[in-house]
Amino acid sequence: MTAQTATPEKAGFSMHRTIERIGIHNLSLLVALVGLLVIFGTLRGDVFFSTRNLLNIGMGVAILGVLAISQTGVIVSGGLDISVGSIVGLTTVATAMTIQSTEAAGMGILAGVIIGALAGLMNGILVTYGRINAVIVTLGTMAIFRGIAFILSDGQSISIFNDSFRWIGTGRIIGLPVPLWILVAVAIGFYIFMHKSIVGRNYYAIGGNPIVARLSGLNIPRYRVAIYVVSGVMAGVGGILLAARTGSGQPISGSDGLELEAITAAFLGGCAMQGGRGTVIGALLGVAIIGVLNNGMILTAVPTFYQMLAKGTLLILAVFLAEYRLNKS
C-alpha cells in the first residue's frame, strides 16, 4: 500500500546515503582543518609549515590521539571516562618507578599497561555493577588516581635514564617519531575493532539502545566493563609515551586538560552524548584539528589563558553540534 508513494522518496534518500557514506561529517571536519591550516599558514606560514613544526604537531597529538580513539569507544558504548588524564599521570609514575627499580624497559611498559587496566577495571565495575553515573564515577576516580600518583611518588618527579625506554618517546622510524607510529597502529587496530569486528559493532547496539541490546542476547555488563578497561589500558599507553618523551614520571602529568581535549576530539569526530554513534576516523580528524589549533595558537602568541577559553568553548561547541545533528536526523 505504500509502495507507490515510497519508491521515489527512497530513491532520493539512497543518493543522500551515498554522500553520507563518503562521510559528509568527516568532510566538514576536513574543511574545518583546511580552514585552520589556511589561517595559521597565512599568519605564520614561515614557521607553521616547517618540517620541524609539523613533526612537533605530530608529537603533540600522538598521546591525545590514543586517548581520543579509546574515548570514542567509551562514548559509543554510552559511557564517558574523564579520569584518563589522571590515569596517564599515575602510569607515568608507575612506569618510572618500575624502571628505576628493575632497570628494564619491558617491565616499565608492563607496569604502565597493568596499572592502566586496573584503573579502567575499577571505573568499569563502579559504573556497571555499582550503577553509578559514569561522569560521577570517573570524576571521583580522576581525583583518586591523581592522589595515588602523588602518594606513590611522594609528590616528586622520578627520572628515567633507560635509553631503550626513552627511544619510545624520542626515537624515529623512517623519519617519523615513534609515538606517531604507535598512534597509527592504535588507530588501525581500533578502526578494525570498532567498525569490522562483531564485538565492536555490538558497542553501537549497546550505546544506541541498551534494552534492544539486552533483548538481542548481549551481556551488557561485560561489554561495559571491558570498554573501560580498554580505555584504562590506552591511557596507560599514553602514560608510557609521555614518560618516555619527558624522561620522567610526574604525578601531575596529564593534568593539563588531556581528558578535556580527548573528549572534545571524540565529540568533534561525531560521537553522540547518549551513545551509539562515533567513528575512529572522525576522532582522528578531531585530534588533528585540536593539534593544529594548539600549535597555531602558540605560534601566533595567543596568551595561555585565552587558549584555555578556546579549548573549553570548543568542547561545548562540539557537543552542541553533535546534539544538533542528532536532532536534525
Binding site: 547496539a205 544506541g208 554513534r277
Partner: peptide
Amino acid sequence: DEALLLLQTILENAVLC
C-alpha cells in the same frame, strides 16, 4: 524502545541476533 536500533540500518537491525 525495545526492538529497534533507530540509529542503524535495516541490515544492521536484522542481523543483531
